[in-house]
Design a protein around this nucleic acid. Structure first.
Lengths: 356, 356
DNA sequence: TTGAAAGCGCTAACAA
DNA sequence: TTGTTAGCGCTTTCAA
């Protein structure tokens, strides 16, 4: 611990008030109203007055007081984003990119992003309620939708604007952006089947998560399409972390006969599975095929590089943000929901054709 | 693309106004002032009135209008956090955890977090200026400090409250939380040297980043302490990504004789270096030692698990947030800056004693 | 083309 | 113990 003298830095918590409309009005000898309209470039202000006002405004370094504007307009120009987290030691490569996506678009459109983190559940829902009721944001972006999603239900009931990244099962239609995970996983299985794999294992995720459910459905469908039998012992559920993937993969490798391929529900688990296989002395891509889902940056540089399904997180954030702002402003009150078709990224971890 | 009928969901963008103080006042036949004071539990309101008011408030489902409170108080109850990002495809495992740290503490203290992302540079600084001048936050949390940090300089000049995660070189004292990276990297080098390594390579990071500078200084010091020669060919600079670590490690492995150990400036690069070594057929922990820095969750489950230096990101976020709120509220206008002593986490990637 | 006045919802100094 | 008045800074009728 280092100690600094207590008198070095001084924060003027009560800083000198900046110029207000009133100040400008005084300076140019006009009314506050006129100044306001001049600054907003209303038609009914004479060019001379406008010039005068603008001049004075810039001289005084005028910046509108957002707080006052917001009160007047009863808008916050802020979008809410509550991150579902599980415990403090959480780290999700997905979120930073998504946040950048919504954040950059929001900035472009003149919105701020209010971020909070909550463990899924009652506490989380309460946060939504609090924020809605105290008028702190104009709308929400929802992520990690659940099959029964109380957040969506609540917002729908309340009539509060939101856009979700992901679909759900228990609610009426609502605006969302999503990627077709079922389709994506079918692509994976089809690819593996074509390479000659017959014992394709699956590491899923908790199925209350909508995307996990979809991906699993895709696995089952893919197996059926390929005419492969579905074996309960080859289907497991992980917790989306690398560690979880590692553990589940070890389990799978212990079945006999072991699978020749493992399709994981996300990249992190796939990375864990790769480690597990390697720790058993297997060469991934030759002795066993392993695939992921998401195409996180790590997937590209893993050893071997991971075959996976691409999910354009950043762009999805962009779209969701744009849709939400459209709803809020009324410019696009009923945007069409978007379902993206994913594409397979083939790298080395799935190997090539397997000996028959 | 999926199309939904345009008439399903209805967002009441203009929702019915909720109860205000005025409504309560009317209902109980008191003045707005009295109601306000009753709700704030002032001493000078009779118990009967208080009870009456509270009753009415809950019946009406009263929720104070934050916007009005903020205007009146000229406080936003919001903390700003601008994440320096480099390009859209960015993913920082550090960031989500840090955000959870500040976010949870902020919630506890009744603050919101305003998040934005900007590429370091002029645009970023402008974002700070805008936010400060339009009174959108009460203070900032700064991360990824630079040796010459214009953000800190600006905020210091302006007298605007902030707390930084990290030190800097070009400014007077200011409140920060930091980890002693120099010390941490010395621990790493010392450990490697004790294991018998003499050719210890270093993958640094751009040295305008303060933490990168410190860690490199630690490397140099550590080498000196161990009586090892410093060779320019063994010192490289990566970009903090896994890919960067991968590429730099390949370079290092091409020197002759190659290093027997690689100390990376962060875990992501170390992970990349591990992959690089593996792609050359080396067994990490036996044929070569590789170490990281940060102890991100991935470090624990990599293959082999990564020897690294622990950095308690979540707690640092907590502390920074707490300090900042102390400054803003004036409860703790001059908190002591905190410099944490890191500890080495020895796992398998550094191996054990090397043959002499 | 301009200004006076009202109001967004809340808090606080002052008076009664 | 309570109410009156003023004001935070801005936008927006409405009238001149």
């Amino acid at each position: 611990m280092e100690t600094l003298s207590k008198t070095f830095w001084i924060f003027d918590v009560n800083q000198p008030m900046p110029a207000t409309l009133k100040d400008i009005a005084q300076k140019v000898g006009k009314s506050v109203t006129t100044v306001s309209r001049a600054l907003h470039d209303y038609d009914d202000v004479s060019p001379e007055t406008k010039a005068l006002v603008r001049q004075a405004a810039s001289e005084l370094g005028y910046i509108p007081n957002i707080l006052a504007q917001r009160l007047q307009k009863q808008r916050t120009d802020t979008l809410g984003f509550i991150l579902p987290t599980f415990g403090p030691r959480f780290s999700d490569p997905f979120f930073s990119e998504f946040l950048a996506g919504i954040g950059n678009k929001a900035t472009e459109l003149g919105y701020d992003i209010l971020v909070a983190t909550r463990p899924p559940g009652e506490e989380e829902l309460q946060a939504y309620r609090d924020i809605v009721q105290s008028y702190r944001v104009d709308g929400f972006i929802i992520v990690r939708t659940r099959r029964k999603d109380c957040r969506i239900q609540y917002l729908l009931e309340t009539g509060f604007p939101f856009v979700a990244f992901g679909r759900t099962e228990n609610a009426g239609p609502y605006p969302y952006v999503d990627e077709d995970g079922e389709y994506g996983m079918r692509l994976v299985v089809r690819h593996l089947a074509r390479l000659g794999h017959r014992r394709i294992a699956f590491i899923g995720a908790p199925e209350d998560l909508m995307f996990a459910h979809c991906r699993k459905a895709g696995y089952l469908q893919g197996m059926e399409e390929a005419g492969l039998p579905i074996e309960a012992s080859l289907i497991t559920t992980g917790d989306l972390t690398q560690r979880g993937g590692y553990e589940k993969a070890l389990q799978l490798l212990d079945t006999s006969p072991p699978p020749t391929a493992i399709a994981a529900s996300n990249d992190l688990m796939a990375l864990g599975a790769i480690n597990a296989a390697q720790s058993r002395g297997l060469e991934v891509g030759r002795d066993i095929a392993i695939t992921g889902f998401d195409n996180i940056p790590l997937a590209e540089t893993s050893h071997p590089p991971l075959t996976t399904v691409h999910q354009p997180i950043y762009q999805i954030g962009h779209m969701a943000c744009e849709m939400l702002v459209g709803i809020i402003t009324g410019a696009q009150p009923h945007p069409e929901s978007i379902l993206l078709k994913p594409s397979l990224i083939v790298r080395q971890s799935c190997g090539v054709r397997v000996a028959a």
